[in-house]
Every structure is written in structure tokens, then in C-alpha cells.
Design a protein around this nucleic acid. Structure first.
Length: 427
RNA sequence: GGAGAGAUGGCUGAGUGGUCGAAAGCGCUCCCCUGCUAAGGGAGUAUACGUUAAUAGCGUAUCGAGGGUUCGAAUCCCUCUCUCUCCGCCA
């Protein structure tokens, strides 16, 4: 959520920033709502003040044994008027709040204009795509050996966009999780955390998936407002919801392995082949909670932490900064890391690292006591994938494939494989 | 699933209808004393919103959440959530 004061006082600036996202702000409606809010609020509050004064007088009169009836008569008429004023105010505040909750974060000045992913701007390119002496297969063909990647079984057990992995590929998948967690905890300073895969709606409002993106979520059909997490960013970031942190608790750095569940509504035709876009996938996430002045450096750091996985695996990738049309709802600036996939002859997203500034913190009421000012101030939150495991699996398979259809184990993963150096060697 | 107890400020914890936004303690901040350390004395210290140049003043709201009773609710009533104890069941 944006600072309501900013919307009140600098509506034009806000509208300009929204335009970078191709979002047109209805400034007339907003200023009209704001004007109503002001008059309704001052009206309700002055009636409340009258009531409070009278009630106090009644108490004092009774204490002295005087007759309180005259004051009681005088206040009696207030009741209905006050109630009506309060109802009107509440209704308007709800309306205003709904508008506010539906507004995305302000983008950073660095965010380039653009309408979709084709307008994202490449920041750097690391590693050279390998020159193959044969035509590389994609992961679906590679995984067909021994039904290591079994899409038909996934479809039978559940439905489309679910997959069964077995044998070497299941083991590779697990090794990648281990390697990512070990890297983030041992080299990059994160604390491993394990969290629920089901969250309530408060948490989803906190990080911004609700109220706008309900259709992307799997909602449980139970009495409670429970949802499967679309990313562990939700439970991990909400760790600080409704908390007043001590300055020396910051920065907080968490890494978390979880399954992620996305309904992928609205992308029925996209990436239907293979593991790229699944309803369930696993991810090692990074989350940081930092002081406001540290968040932009943290974004760069966190991006490099995600990159460190691909560097260690020695797989080529590039980093792009998302344009206004492609950046997420809660982010002020986002770097996507795109990994080279020989099977697709393309760079594909494998990580997304965002600085959400105080956007999520305001929704979550996540604050810290700033020793410099003595005030309670909102923290900044960041999240990023470090990395998406399924897509990393694809990248390893496709980049490390041999002409005979087997796959070499990347050197850094050898400790997770005992003496095994080749995968999928059996026909 | 059954029975019971509870939820108050950064923390612990008083407070059962009327100057209660809330005692006390801890913590924290400032000052004094003390030539280290430890201890002692004094003052201050919730948050959000509105109004405002103002984190000055004033107003409003907030004692788990929501509703109700009342002129007035931390305090009474209802619903819900969560925590703890005991029993049952269970990976």
C-alpha cells in the first residue's frame, strides 16, 4: 500500500509514476473520495467529542449527587446522528481502502518504460552459451529416459501441469535444493527457515497477492480463509507482520525451501510443454527485511546471491531490469535473472528479485524503532528466488547434456552425488 | 474431538461501568551522584488517524478481532480467532 498522505498531497507525482506502469490513476475520483473522507471524518469526530464531553459531565454530576437528567436529555438526540455519521465514515473508508489496496507500488526512477517483457532492459550477460557439436535436446526429451520426467503420470494423478520425477532426476532435483540452501546459508548469510505451505488471507493481503490476484491462487475449500502459498515469500515476509522490531534485529535474511502452488489462470496456452510452467513447483526463496536506507544496496546484493548459484553451476545467464509494464504489483524495482536454455535456444526467467520498499511493510504494519529519530518507522522488504528449482533442473539437464543423451553432474553438485558423475546413462 | 483457563503498552503485570490511555515493575532516553565496575537519586517514555508549518497544541480511535447493551465499556452480553493445561486420537 502507498502512503495515503502521498496520495493526498502529491497526487500528480503519484499519477506520473503509475503511468510508467501503464496504469491510469483516476485522480478525480481519488480527490473526490479524499474530500468526502475529510468532511465525514471531521463531522463524526466532532460528534464523538460532544458525546464524550457530555458523558464525562454526567459522570461528574452523578459523583457529586447532582441531577444528571438535563444533560442526559441533551445527549439523547445525539445518538442517531452520531451513528449515521460513523456508518457513513466507515463506508467511505472501506471504499477508499479498497482503492488503495488495489494500487501498485511506486516504481523506482531506474525502471524503464515499456509495455511488456520485450521492453525489459538487459543489464549484464554472464557466461557463454556452450557450442554444441550436436543438436541439443530439450529437457522433456532428455527426461524421457526411464520416465525420469513423467508428465503423463502427473496428469493422471492430478491433471495438466503436474509432473512425476523419478530416479536420477528426482535426485538431481533434491541435490539442487540442498546446494541452494547450503550456498545461501553458508556463503551469503541467510538463516534457513521452514514455514507453513498454507497461509491465511491476512498474510496474502500483507504481501499483496490479495485482493487483486485471487485467481492466481489455490484456495482451500475449508471453513477457514486458507490458501496454498504461491511462493514462500508470503509466509516468510509475513514473519514481521504486526511487529515492532528492534533496530539491531535488522537486517533479517531468510532463505526458505518450499513447494509453491499457482493456478496459472490466464496462461493456458503458454509453456504447455515440459516443466517450465507448473501448478506445483519448488523454490528456494530469499527474503530480506532491512532499514529503508539499506534496501537498494540489498537489492543488488540479493541479485548477486541469486546469480551465485548459476555461477557455481557454470550456466550462462543474463540479468534484466523489468520495465514498467512487466514489473510486479508490490515491487519498486525488479531484476529478473534469465538462464540460457539450449533446448529452447533462449534465455528464460529463473529468478526474480524485487525491492518492495515500504509497500508490503505498510500493509503488514511491519515497523522498527529507529534509534536515529526515536520513531517507529516502516521497514523495507525484499524477496527473490535463489532459485526456482524446477527451472534450474531444466537448465542443468539442457546445458550439461552429452551427445548420447546422458547428463554430466555439475562439479559443485558432486558432493551431493557420491561417486556418481553421469545421470541418465541407461537407455 | 471433549473439559477448563486465559489474551491489557517494547516486555512482565494490576485494573469488573464514569477525570483509565490505563497502576507498578522491567527495559529504554536524558540529568545528577560516584575517579573503574557495581550500585543509587531525579525526570521522561504507547500507537494510529485528523487538524496544523510543526514528531507544538487540540480532537478522535485503540486494552486479541467483530458485533451488542449504555449518556458512558479494558470492565457487562454475543460471535469468532489464538494461546495454555488436562483427556482422547494421531504422522
Amino acid at each position: 500500500m502507498l502512503d495515503p498522505k502521498l496520495i493526498r498531497n502529491e497526487l500528480d507525482t503519484v499519477a506520473k509514476k503509475m503511468a510508467v506502469r501503464n496504469v491510469t490513476l483516476d485522480t478525480d475520483k481519488l480527490s473526490q473520495l479524499e474530500a468526502s473522507r475529510k468532511s465525514l471524518q471531521s463531522n463524526a469526530e466532532s460528534l464523538q467529542a460532544q458525546r464524550n464531553t457530555a458523558s464525562k459531565a454526567i459522570g461528574q454530576a452523578k459523583a457529586k449527587g447532582e441531577d444528571a437528567q438535563p444533560i442526559l436529555d441533551q445527549v439523547a438526540a445525539l445518538g442517531d446522528e452520531l451513528k449515521a455519521a460513523e456508518v457513513a465514515l466507515t463506508e467511505l473508508q472501506n471504499e477508499l481502502n479498497e482503492v488503495l489496496m488495489g494500487m501498485p507500488n511506486l516504481v523506482h526512477d531506474d525502471v524503464p518504460p515499456g509495455k511488456d517483457e520485450s521492453d525489459n532492459v538487459e543489464v549484464r550477460r554472464v557466461g557463454e552459451p556452450r557450442a554444441f557439436s550436436f543438436t541439443p535436446l530439450d529437457h522433456v526429451d532428455l527426461g524421457a529416459r526411464g520416465n525420469s520426467l513423467d508428465f503423463e503420470q502427473g496428469a493422471k494423478l492430478t491433471g495438466s501441469r503436474f509432473t512425476v520425477m523419478q530416479g536420477d532426476i528426482a535426485k538431481l532435483h533434491r541435490a539442487l535444493v540442498q546446494f541452494m540452501l547450503d550456498t545461501q546459508t553458508q556463503r551469503n548469510g541467510y538463516t534457513e527457515i521452514s514455514v507453513p505451505f498454507i497461509v491465511n488471507s491476512d498474510s496474502l493481503y500483507g504481501t499483496g497477492q490479495l485482493p487483486k490476484f485471487a485467481e492466481d491462487l489455490f484456495k482451500l475449500n475449508v471453513e477457514q480463509d486458507y490458501y496454498l502459498i504461491p511462493t514462500s515469500e508470503v509466509p516468510v515476509t509475513n514473519m514481521v507482520r504486526d511487529r515492532l522490531l528492534d533496530a539491531n534485529e535488522l537486517p533479517m535474511r531468510f532463505t526458505c525451501h518450499s513447494a509453491c502452488f499457482r493456478s496459472e489462470a490466464g496462461s493456458y496456452g503458454r509453456d504447455t510443454r515440459g516443466l517450465i510452467r507448473q501448478h506445483q513447483f519448488e523454490k528456494v526463496e530469499m527474503v530480506q527485511v532491512v532499514k529503508p536506507e539499506d534496501s537498494w544496496q540489498a537489492l543488488e546484493d540479493m541479485t548477486s546471491h541469486a546469480e551465485s548459484i548459476l555461477q557455481a553451476l557454470n550456466i550462462p545467464y543474463r540479468v534484466v531490469v523489468l520495465c514498467g509494464g512487466d514489473i510486479g504489483f508490490g515491487a519498486a524495482k525488479t531484476y529478473d535473472i534469465e538462464v540460457w536454455l539450449p533446448g529452447q535456444d533462449a534465455y528464460r526467467e529463473i529468478s526474480s528479485v524485487s525491492n518492495c520498499t515500504d509497500f508490503q511493510a505498510r500493509r503488514m504494519q511491519a515497523r522498527f524503532k529507529n534509534p536515529a529519530t526515536g520513531k517507529n518507522e516502516l521497514v523495507h522488504t525484499l524477496n527473490g528466488s535463489g532459485l526456482a528449482v524446477g527451472r534450474t533442473l531444466i537448465a542443468v539437464l539442457e546445458n550439461y547434456q552429452q551427445e548420447d543423451g546422458s547428463v554430466e553432474v555439475p562439479e559443485v553438485l558432486l558432493p551431493y552425488f557420491g561417486n556418481q558423475t553421469l545421470l541418465l546413462t541407461n537407455e
